[in-house]
Design a protein around this nucleic acid. Structure first.
Ligand SMILES: [Zn+2]
Ligand SMILES: [Zn+2]
Ligand SMILES: [Zn+2]
Ligand SMILES: [Zn+2]
Lengths: 143, 143
DNA sequence: TCAGGAATGATAATCATTATCATATTGCAA
DNA sequence: TTGCAATATGATAATGATTATCATTCCTGA
């Protein structure tokens, strides 16, 4: 039993951009978890978290994440191990990752927002989010 | 039969940073192809390209790409379909990608180089490259 | 209330990447 | 130069995250 709560639902009041369709139960549920999460989560991690409170199938989570990306509500990034991590678009977090041991440290700056605004105007795209990640080798792994 | 050609081999002369080990035949071969390629390639695409001239196993290509990343000679990015694309580090290309149809358009600016230099100094990492990609919906796919 | 369409869930299928392991090559010491 | 240990290679099996499938359930609007 999943309750719809559109308290934080997409801008329908301040109709900025095309009207967003109502979210399905699964989408609402997934979005809610991501919005209250400080760290990005994989689909399977979401499944593990959600299944106790609100039983939901893994396939539904994948579908919800896809839909939420398309609505500009969720963003993704891919780890070195190949799993995709999702977070609410509001969270703009970037990392510096070691190619050897995989350790990631957060980068608190983001020099991309301005360029994103420029591109938004110059291109025919509606831009929702960006990924920015640095790769190298940490001193632990240095030869 | 793969010939070693270290014309463009890693900085050994201007010993900047730790001395890089010699490349194996497979690594040299893969690096050479990537350096003469203007577009990023997947491991399997590389295999398709290389197997005619220089027969080489797919596993070897994956291993070479891993090693070359660790040496700071090759960079990677992951497409929406989950395949990893590789290119020589010299090429700093970024894209704006549609989440719906997958079309990618190049972005010619990069506001990250400066931040990368800062991080290089501030962190204990040796930073080799970065990924930067914008995601949204193209006008074709717009509702 | 009922039919058509969309959403869901369990599970099978996909497919890029990794692990395995036997063989080939390389670098180096004797 | 020869012999050997360490490393690299290739074919292939195994892995694992994601996607496709399909039967069932839920919604919605006539
Ligand atoms: Zn490390
Ligand atoms: Zn950012
Ligand atoms: Zn599109
Ligand atoms: Zn760049």
């Amino acid at each position: 039993m999943i309750l719809k709560q559109d308290a934080e639902s997409p801008a329908e009041a301040t109709s900025k951009g095309p009207p967003k369709p109502r979210l399905t139960a699964g989408q609402q549920s997934v979005l809610d978890v991501l919005q209250h999460q400080s760290q990005p989560l994989s689909a399977q991690a979401l499944h593990g978290l959600m299944r106790r409170q609100q039983p939901i199938g893994l396939a539904t989570i994948y579908r919800a994440l896809d839909a939420l990306k398309l609505l500009g509500l969720v963003q993704h990034r891919v780890t070195l191990t190949g799993e995709t991590l999702y977070s609410a678009v509001e969270h703009d977090h970037h990392y510096l990752t070691c190619l050897q041991c995989g350790v990631s440290v957060p980068v608190d700056t983001c020099p991309v927002k301005e360029l994103e605004a420029q591109l938004q105007g110059a291109s025919s795209f509606r831009i929702y989010y960006h990924t920015l990640e640095f790769f190298g080798v940490c001193d632990q792994c240095e030869v």
